[in-house]
Design a protein around this nucleic acid. Sequence first.
RNA 1: GGUCGGGUGGCCGAGCGGUUAGGCAGAGGUCUGCAAAACCUUGUACAGCGGUUCAAAUCCGCUUCCGACCUCCA
Length: 493
Amino acid sequence: MSRNLVVYNSLTRQKEKFSPIQEGFIGMYVCGPTVYNDVHLGNCRTFMSFDVIYRYLLYLGYKVRYVRNITDVGHLLDDGEDRMSKGARLDNLEPMEVAQKYSNGFHHIMSIFNTLPPSIEPRATGHILEQIEMVKEILDNGYAYEKNGSVYFDTLKFAEKTGEYGKLSGRIIEDLISESRDNLKNQDEKNHPSDFAIWMKASDEHIMKWNSPWSVGFPGWHLECSAMSTKYLGKNFDIHGGGNDLKFPHHENEIAQNVGSCGCQPANYWIHTNMLLMNGKKMSKSDGNTISPEELFTGKSVHVSKGYSPMVVRFFMLQSHYRSPNDLTDEALLAAEKGFKRLMDANKNLDGLIGASPLETILDTKISEIIEGAYSDMDDDFNTPRALARLFEIVTIINSLKDGQMSLSDISVTGITKIKDAMRTIIFDILGLKDESENNAGPLDGLMNLIIDLRQQARVNKDWGTSDKIRDSLNEIQIQIKDGKEGTSWSFK
RNA sequence: GGUCGGGUGGCCGAGCGGUUAGGCAGAGGUCUGCAAAACCUUGUACAGCGGUUCAAAUCCGCUUCCGACCUCCA
């Protein structure tokens, strides 16, 4: 915590020095998925971005309560039907079955991408009471009105009295009047087009509904995040995050609900991640420009020429800043795959290195500067691409030491230890990458050692026919033989 | 149409007043029985036009192209 963390705050549109409400503790709320179908890669990018943020805050020594919700009710489609109900109707399942099924899938993918689980993962349906309470408070404060069993947030009145509405998204309420879409359900019940439902009366055929003072119905989308963040992090907490497509209306309305119920700003810092593009276009569930994690891993998609491992994908995403759009292309993934391998190989090469200088050297100093630079990059609004660039400078040094372009006497014992610590802390703890090649242990290793050994004998006997046959045959089954200075190794192609 | 954010070398992608970003590809070299792999070295850039400045990819203006949001989205 001695470092100076700076974060970009969407609320003020500038980088700000980060200081938590309570020294040493951080409350962070991130909008999670609506579990009505499989996660797509765009979702994954957002959660990986916040995973790195979470990991870095932990690294800095903060005790972080990371809350990421699961929305399983209240999210309306264009025709007014609840997403969950629609999923249930199509699959002939209970709504809770749909939610469970896709929550499981979501967790599975998140773990494949090596993201840490949040501290609390609350569900909207588990917090109906809290949401009803919040509707009451908003009504009591005069920022909502009831119409036919539904309750709407009064954006005009709220904007007039508090001047708060539109701050986050840079929206002006007059513009909202003329631009609002008019095809939403119960639009005619609203006093003002920018008003939004915080409680909706359910129709008879609606499956997910609860009793309330106003009607048998369900909470509006936006409300669950306001209620749950308040419940678990308090009325005012440190960080609120989400994809930047949630800025409006979701986050704007969330702020309105929080301010409207308790009179205080929910979060001090708003962090928004940018979109994942594919071939230059926004990746989105609704317009078909999408690739699922499985398709990407297996290569079974028209968008990729082959499969890419989860860590290659994670590395690829870390190579761009979380606030920049990231364009996923086959070519870019191919480049990331090679770069990631180089990074992992260098890390492994470290094991064989021992510094020979008893004293601190010029190289030691240079390395310390690079490492400090990498941490400074993380301090600067979690700049992972820059931190990664610094690591590659170290990669070159490691390889030069290993291959003899640099002498081991140029570096001290502690210099090597420093590199090892920093590489591992940054790559694995902070960036959350994993060395996937370490999963190959078992009988295969022994078998390969035997084959390599036999080939080595043939080579010693200058039996090139046999040695080349072994090499070429293995190559055909996607195993690559690598003859190096200190012996032969192998890997999957 | 409104609001916001962008256009950086063959590709991806940082930087946002003076410094080598980095990765991939390309070129040269090292190693090797040959090859592959690996490693080292290295060229190439800031959409266009003006302006401010000793100095601009970085600030300002205009032009042009692209993207996001504007009540489905992470």
